[in-house]
Design a protein around this nucleic acid. Structure first.
Lengths: 210, 210
DNA sequence: GAATTGTATATTGTATACAATATTAAACAA
DNA sequence: TTGTTTAATATTGTATACAATATACAATTC
């Protein structure tokens, strides 16, 4: 079976990579002819991709002015992370205690997080950990919303990812969450997961201010 | 100042109206040439509008197969409403106690809900009531998500809106929520708001099964 | 020099054209 | 009849074209 992906979804990922790699800066205009030449595609699917990113809150647009990369702001951080916290802890409660296989895999990812010293890999692993933790949740709408929030928060994390001590604390919290789950303490795990989502917010905002 | 809206956002509203009025049926293919002729626009902004509705969960699409109106299902109802409950009660907690002006307006809308016997108007008033209740919430991402969930749930409500007793209960709950807020009981109000979001879910599913 | 108008250029928003794929049904064989 | 192949048609996906708007910059006035 051949995988036929629409161009727009491929473009979304490529543009996302450009953002992650810092090739595109916050508030930078995203000119359609320029970008479409760069990616060797026409403007139509590019616009579709940019509109999708706009709905995800990564890109903004004004009528007649076209698209630009959204700015980063303290206010947004204070919206995204607490909301992530709320949604993820709810999703965990819905998921129930994960299987022992999943718990093992969670432990394994967490160990990798401790070992790596690549901040970029850390972000990837952290997302994988959270996704896996919630993989048993059957509320797909909830999971979609969480995914959008992940992208939004990752934009900040890629931009300011030198926060060594934050990651240490986070990994320890992950461990503790796993322990709670092994003991069947779903609610405690959920509470700690919420906390885990907002750890480092203040540090992030400090970096942001500079 | 002249209000310049892109075609796509106008199209979204028109297509939404077609859905609400039952002119488009669940799972019905949305053919681009047909729709664009009907609305007297080209396919480009129409596709943009349909993609937006896809992201909102109102429309589905498969590569090469184009768009169709999403089907209605019990599973989706059981995802949407509890999520709405969670998000709205959180938003209310963030909003704090509304001003007395807002509380008055909430009472007034609620009275209209009691008076009307148009199910369609009831849906509109109910959304207005909930929006106004949360209008003081500063977390815009949260409000956006709630808005999307409102559209999703409204699709069901427009399709099966003969539930007289449900609306009675709902209006009474609204009253009680207002009373709690007047007494400064934010948390109780928030709890009841959550309950208000899931009242009628079972009745809705009953109608859905037929 | 600062502000303002006019003109050229760039950019977006929408429409159309073209190419690739999917659907239909018509012809044919088992 | 039932199923299979093939051709015709319809539909989508992408590219391009055109029109409307925005931006930049030079000319002009004060």
């Amino acid at each position: 079976m051949i995988n036929r992906k629409p161009l727009r979804s491929q473009i979304i990922e490529v543009v996302w990579q450009l953002i992650v790699e810092g090739k595109l800066q916050p508030n930078e205009p995203l000119r359609e002819v320029h970008l479409s030449k760069l990616l060797n595609i026409s403007r139509t699917p590019l616009r579709e991709a940019l509109q999708r990113l706009e709905w995800e809150g990564i890109v903004t647009s004004a009528p007649g002015k076209g698209f630009r990369l959204a700015t980063l702001s303290e206010e947004e951080v204070r919206e995204i992370y607490p909301l992530r916290a709320k949604l993820e802890s709810y999703a965990l409660e819905l998921s129930g205690i994960p299987s022992s296989d999943v718990l093992e895999e969670l432990t394994s990812i967490n160990k990798k997080m401790l070992k790596t010293n690549s901040p970029k890999e850390l972000v990837v692993l952290d997302e994988r950990w959270h996704d896996l933790l919630l993989s048993n949740c059957t509320n797909r709408k909830l999971l979609e919303m969480i995914k959008v929030l992940h992208r939004q928060s990752q934009r900040y994390e890629y931009a300011y990812m030198n926060m060594d001590d934050k990651s240490k604390v986070s990994v320890e919290q992950h461990e503790q969450i796993i322990k709670y789950l092994q003991k069947g303490e779903l609610l405690l795990a959920s509470k700690l997961l919420a906390a885990n989502n907002v750890v480092g917010v203040e540090a992030l905002i400090e970096s942001l201010k500079k």
